[in-house]
C-alpha cells in the first residue's frame, strides 16, 4: 500500500488524478475501521492531513463554506449558531475522540446511509464542492448520494468543502440508536424551518439505500402551513397536520431489516421523530416570532 502525503491542495489533486483508486484519508475514523476489519485494502492512501485549508471554514452572507476536514468538535463549538442542525448531528457522532477527528467531508466521502451529518445537510440545504485537476463543480447534496456507500464523485475528484445554507430558522436533529451514546444510527431525522422561503426541509438517515429528503412530507407541510397562515399567525400546528406529516415521513423511508433494527421499527421511529422535531422547531419559531413582535 502506498501512502501519499501531499503538502498542498494542488498536489493532492495531482495525486488523485494520477492514482484514481487512491482513498483519501483525513480523520481516519471510517477508512481505518474498514482497513482494520479488512473490508477494503486500498492500493493507495491519500493523506489530506497536511492541507491546512481543509480544516478551515468561512461564514458568508448566505452560506458557511465548511472545509472538508473540519472536525465535528469544531462545528459543535464554533458553528452552533449558523449550523444548528449539523451541530446537533455532530453531538451524536461517536465518542469525543471520534468527534475530534471525524469530519463532514469524511461522512460524504463514505456516503454511508447511516452517516450522521447527512440528514442535517439535506434539511439545511447544501452543496458539495468537488474538485479535480479538471476544475470545480458544485453538487447539490440531494444529488450527491447515489447508492449504499456510493456517491457521484469522479475518480479524480476530491471534496474540498461543503457549502451549507446558514440557518434562517430553527433546526433539529434526532437519531435513534439502541444505546444512549456512541452508536450508529438505527435511523435519523433532520428538520429545518426556512421562514425566509416559508418552506420546511427534511433529511432521513439510515432508512433507505441513501440519505433522502421526505419530499411528499415537505410539500404537504408547506401547503398546510401556508393554507392556515401559520407562518404569520404563529399558531400551533394542528395535531392532525403533524400526524399526517409524520406518516408521510415514515412513508418516504425505504428501510431494511438488519442487525441494528427492523424495517417496521425504523418507519415507526421516523414518524415519532418527525412529529417531535416538528413540535420543537415550531415552538421555537413561534417563540422567536413572539419575542420579535414584542421587541
Amino acid at each position: 500500500m502506498d501512502f501519499l502525503r501531499p503538502a498542498s491542495w494542488e498536489e493532492a489533486l495531482a495525486a488523485k488524478a494520477e492514482h484514481p483508486t487512491a482513498v483519501p484519508i483525513a480523520g481516519g475514523t471510517d477508512v481505518m475501521v474498514e482497513i482494520n476489519f479488512d473490508h477494503r485494502r486500498p492500493d493507495v492512501l491519500l493523506d489530506l492531513n497536511r492541507i491546512g485549508e481543509l480544516q478551515e471554514w468561512e461564514v458568508g452572507e448566505e452560506t458557511v463554506r465548511l472545509g472538508a476536514s473540519v472536525p465535528y468538535t469544531r462545528i459543535i463549538e464554533r458553528l452552533r449558531g449558523e449550523l444548528p442542525g449539523l451541530a446537533l448531528a455532530g453531538h451524536t457522532v461517536g465518542s469525543p475522540q471520534i468527534r475530534n477527528r471525524g469530519s463532514v467531508g469524511g461522512n460524504l466521502g463514505a456516503a454511508s446511509p447511516a452517516g450522521d451529518s447527512h440528514p442535517a445537510l439535506l434539511a439545511a440545504g447544501a452543496e458539495v464542492e468537488a474538485v479535480s485537476v479538471r476544475g470545480t463543480r458544485m453538487i447539490p447534496v440531494e444529488e450527491f448520494y447515489t447508492g449504499v456507500k456510493r456517491n457521484c464523485l469522479e475518480a479524480d475528484e476530491l471534496i474540498r468543502a461543503v457549502h451549507i445554507k446558514k440557518a434562517d430558522g430553527p433546526q433539529q436533529f434526532s437519531k435513534v440508536g439502541t444505546r444512549n451514546a456512541m452508536v450508529i444510527a438505527v435511523c435519523a431525522f433532520g428538520l429545518a424551518l426556512h421562514p425566509e422561503t416559508r418552506t420546511v426541509k427534511t433529511g432521513i438517515g439510515s432508512a433507505a439505500p441513501t440519505p433522502i429528503r421526505a419530499r411528499a412530507a415537505e410539500e404537504f407541510l408547506n401547503a398546510a402551513l401556508e393554507e392556515a397562515g401559520l407562518w404569520d399567525n404563529g399558531r400551533i400546528i394542528p395535531p392532525s397536520v403533524a400526524r399526517q406529516f409524520a406518516e408521510l415521513v415514515s412513508g418516504a423511508a425505504n428501510p431494511i431489516d438488519d442487525v441494528r433494527g427492523s424495517a417496521a421499527y425504523r418507519r415507526h421511529a421516523l414518524g415519532v421523530m418527525a412529529r417531535r422535531t416538528l413540535g420543537w422547531t415550531w415552538d421555537e419559531y413561534r417563540g422567536n416570532e413572539r419575542s420579535a413582535r414584542c421587541a
Binding site: 453531538h91 451524536t92 436533529f173 434526532s174 437519531k175 435513534v176 440508536g177 444512549n180 452508536v183 417531535r276
Partner: peptide, 16 residues
C-alpha cells in the same frame, strides 16, 4: 438531554 432516554441522540425532551 443526556439524562433522558436516547441521551445525546436528542430523541425526546420528555415526550412519551
Amino acid at each position: 438531554v443526556r439524562a433522558l432516554p436516547g441521551g445525546l441522540s436528542n430523541t425526546t425532551h420528555g415526550e412519551g
